[in-house]
Amino acid sequence: MSAEPPESGHGDSARTIRRALAGVLAFQLGLAALLFLGDVGRGFSLPSTGPAAPGLDQPARPGDQTRRFAPTDRPARPDSAPMPVRLQLERDGDDAATLRGEIAAGDADLLARRIASMDPTPGILRLDSPGGSVSDALAIGRMIRRLGIATEVGAQAICLSACPYLLAAGSTRRAHPAALVGVHQHYFGENTLLPAFIAVEDIQHGQGEVMAYLSAMGVDLAVMQPALLTPPDEIYLLTPEELQSYRLVTSPWNG
């Protein structure tokens, strides 16, 4: 008596499931690799057929506001000194201080100690920063608001990436028409070697925290639209009119 042939349907189903699982794993590994490369290089981006964005030294006009971005970039101005790699706080007159440099991890704690040591506490904080750590920027911003400090960005200053969160924290806030204030997408978390669904969850959580922060500071959440549409290696420069309409500034610049 001959043996019955194996059920081909069951075998085909098992192979289909294995192929599907292998495809999902390959997708997650590929996305994790892209996230890792972006986190390491910070200048990494997918190939694009469009023209490259101009540099920060090129003037921006409504409808032409996207510029190349790297934390070390700043306009080529005669008085432009190298940007510090950590935030530096210096007294600037009797009632003001200047906060300048990249926002590094741990700067929130360092800045809290610096401001606590100042007597009196500055009433105005002048910003000049290409941004950096989002979590530290939010922590610094909450401290600025708690202390009732006003914020401003001067004519020769920049406030890019995570820096606008500091500007948004001011009890009153203003920006010179020649100042460069810009937003873009952010990185969240330190380790991107994670399954894709975890990486996406971290990004969504980070964006949710940013939105809650901006809402608490009285900023129009519509500012998230140009931010989310601009990749991390570019920056969207906000016009004076947009700064007012998004309520990132509350007072005109009167000298």
Rank of each mutant, 00 (worst) to 15 (best):
L89I: 02
E90C: 06
R91Q: 12
D92R: 14
G93H: 00
A96S: 12
R100L: 05
E102R: 15
E102M: 15
A104R: 01
A105T: 12
G106V: 03
D107S: 10
D107I: 04
A108K: 12
D109E: 12
R113C: 05
R114G: 03
M118Q: 15
M118R: 15
P120T: 07
P120Y: 07
T121E: 14
T121D: 08
P122W: 13
L125H: 07
D128Q: 12
S129I: 13
S129H: 10
P130Q: 06
G131K: 00
G132E: 02
V134G: 02
S135T: 04
A137W: 01
I140K: 03
I144R: 15
L147V: 08
E152H: 13
E152C: 15
V153T: 04
V153G: 01
I158V: 11
L160Q: 14
S161C: 04
C163G: 03
P164M: 01
P164K: 00
L166P: 03
L167S: 04
A169T: 13
R174V: 02
A175S: 14
H176M: 15
A179R: 03
L180V: 08
V181P: 01
G182C: 05
F188G: 12
G189T: 12
G189F: 14
N191T: 08
T192Q: 07
T192K: 13
A196M: 12
A196H: 11
V200N: 13
D202S: 04
I203R: 06
H205Y: 08
H205S: 10
G206I: 04
G208I: 01
E209Q: 10
A212L: 06
A212T: 13
Y213M: 05
M217Y: 02
G218P: 11
V219R: 00
L221S: 00
Q225V: 01
P226W: 08
L228F: 09
L228E: 12
